[in-house]
Design a protein around this nucleic acid. Structure first.
Length: 268
DNA sequence: ATGGTAGGACACCTA
């Protein structure tokens, strides 16, 4: 059997609901994980998703900021959202999906962006980001013992490898690619025994980007992208990784998100 | 070295 899972930082699910439904109609992933939904649970647009056969929703929203959602064509049970850094931010959601091959656990993350200054003294948002990554790493060490096939996705706001950015050298002091962040993320992958699905299917040194800034005059021409969105899988799923789609064209849709959807297929 | 754009909510925060 095959199962496809997509992740997309949508930067307001209500504003861009037509882009999400277009994406679902054209690509039909079994599961879609959204970040930055930017609305409270009571405001979440369930209707358009149900209309397309995505009947099962696990949502965790808050007013104005952050917010994550898991939408599925297969039945799911919502699981407890985790809290990081003792903040009530809606930055994580989880669900257990019932697949023909048995249960599959999904974790959907939205890691803090961390502000502009890569200094924990001068910038508390950066300190928060590093603290979040540390807690994520410790959590992952325990999570790997659950024995349930697991997929972790989301906007992790770190581009950990040299070819996850347009210029490694010029990005070393830019938040998202500093050694403080990349070392923490690589440690989290290693200690959690995660497989970086995107790099499993598209190894270095190929450039891979999922985000292009709104602030470029011409994002496609400059092509100064970063790989901020990730799909990690538990080792048992690694042999099933069969295809990866990064929907770059979605960055050129009308009133786009600055992130594009990433879809992975699990087969066999 | 700097400023560039976008969303939510309604003064200014977050990205």
């Amino acid at each position: 059997m095959t199962l496809s899972i997509a992740t997309w930082n949508i930067n307001s699910v209500r504003l861009r609901i037509d882009l999400v439904t277009r994406f679902l109609e054209e690509h039909k992933p079994d599961i879609l994980c959204l970040q930055e939904t930017k609305c409270m649970n009571g405001q979440f647009p369930h209707g358009p998703f149900r209309k397309l056969g995505y009947d099962y929703h696990a949502i965790n929203g808050q007013k104005g900021y952050h917010g994550v959602a898991i939408l599925s064509r297969l039945p799911l049970q919502e699981e407890e959202s985790l809290m990081f850094c003792e903040k009530p931010d809606a930055r994580h959601g989880a669900a257990l999906v019932t697949t023909p091959d048995g249960p599959l656990r999904i974790h959907n993350f939205y890691v803090p962006a961390g502000g502009d200054i890569p200094d924990v003294e001068a910038n508390e948002k950066f300190a928060h980001k590093l603290g979040f990554l540390d807690e994520m790493r410790l959590w992952g060490q325990k999570e790997k013992q659950t024995k349930i096939p697991t997929v972790l996705v989301g906007d992790l706001n770190v581009a950990p490898l040299e070819n996850d950015v347009w210029s490694h050298k010029q990005m070393l002091k830019i938040v998202s690619h500093t050694p403080m962040e990349t070392e923490r993320m690589l440690a989290a992958i290693q200690e959690g025994e995660w497989v970086d699905a995107m790099r499993h299917l598209i190894p270095e040194p190929e450039k891979v980007y999922t985000w292009w800034s709104y602030r470029a005059a011409d994002w496609a021409l400059a092509n100064r992208g970063r790989r901020l969105d990730h799909i990690w899988v538990s080792p048992d799923l690694a042999p099933k990784l069969s295809d990866l789609t990064i929907l770059r064209e979605a960055r050129g849709w009308e009133r786009p998100s600055d992130h594009v959807p990433v879809i992975v297929r699990l087969e066999g």
